[in-house]
Design a protein around this nucleic acid. Sequence first.
RNA 1: GCGAGCGUAGCUCAGUCGGUAGAGUGCUGCACUGUGGAUGCAGUUGUCGCGGGUUCAAGUCCCGUCGCUCGCCCCA
Length: 429
Amino acid sequence: MKNIINPVKGTRDFYPQDKSVNSWLYQNIREVSESFGYQEFDGPFLESIDLYAAKSGEELVKEQSFVFPDKSGNLIALRPELTPSLVRMIAQQQQQLYYPLRWWSFGPFWRYESPQKGRGREFFQWNADLIGVDSPEADAEMAALMAEFFKKIGLSSTQVKVFVNNRRLIEGELSKLDISPDKQGKVFRLIDRKDKLSDKEWSSYALKIGIETKQFDGIKKLLSTDDMWKESTELVQFFSAVDALGVKDYVEYSPRIIRGLDYYTGTVFEALSISTDVRRSISGGGRYDNLLADVGGDSLPGVGFAMGDMVVNVILEELGLLPENRSSSPAKVIVTVFDAESQMASYQLGAELRQTGLNVYSYPTPDKLGKQFRHADRIGAKIAVILGPDEISKQQVAIKDLKTREQVTVSRSEAAAAIQGILDTDSGA
RNA sequence: GCGAGCGUAGCUCAGUCGGUAGAGUGCUGCACUGUGGAUGCAGUUGUCGCGGGUUCAAGUCCCGUCGCUCGCCCCA
């Protein structure tokens, strides 16, 4: 390795086998989103820093965004999240859109953070939002969307779970413990860290934010009450909708899910792996009923989530669920070049076969047939076509099945059909 | 921002007490001039991350630096 410029820290190179995973995720996301009637949309990758200053967490803008001045001196950010763009787009056309709005998106985002397993500085994110409905059933649809996606990519309900809680429920419980609303934000952070800190560290964190012993005991009791959702009519409705949507197995109540972001107002959810030691959350979201009004639009309720691609990749890899055949050529047919004299005839044959709809890889130079077969095998081709002097003189082509090593010679006009026939039996077997 | 570990061939890595730079794999050729994956033989690949220091001698020890990885913080 000499004189190769390092890639930018935290970015990934998508070699074909990696890009195929990315495309596969995109495809599955598209199919699941569309199956629920969501429409694809996208915002710009570059946004004015002001867009994020309005509402995103201070830290996300100041510490974790790529920001640079353009030639006129305006501060531009590489988007660290999609929600502000989404909210702006809706506010801009608020009177012209039909509600509820079901929108989804999949694209790149950037955050200036320290790269490690399951986290980079450049990542892809799936966003799905349901705008204009304030109901537990809408929340349930979000959970179902996530669950159906997991099902589709091969993650079972014993491998991943969508954990759900409700902030209004917890706020009410905290008030019963005489924890004032202005302190509840800090308690949310405390709850958020329950599984990340040791018991000792967690206790001392509680002390630090001014929680009394009695209140602390109450909080601990809250966090171990797994059927508290029954106290919340919202969650009762939510779970009955989840049941109706057929994803009960994937969705579970957890008093410990609270989410870090401030703008969530009701139901919150987070998908986690329960079968690997990957602690990082796969996806997260919740209800945000004030967001649009906060940005200057008319009040409009919404619920949504985001899922990064990196944690999903780690989990799929650890469970051995990544799609296979990732580095093979999209062409399953290779046309060999017998010698320099016949190369143009081979090229012509390749073009002819392509016209019939086949993906055809033309070997680019005359070479030993053995070498060409070896190459064909390595790129994952199934069939090699040979056009030597004998075939040319008889208006024929030789078709070789690389797997069975069987070879047939057919007239040129029948070649495409013969190839298609072999491909069909292969894929059937 | 803080902490730990690792940088040796295209790739994965070994390298003992400081004493000639290695293996596997890959790649190329040949056995095999109209037919591949096996096997055998031959060949090929190096700023040992970079800079300095100690030493007769440094891949190895010391200092610095850069890069990568993994944690913490935070989050997708």
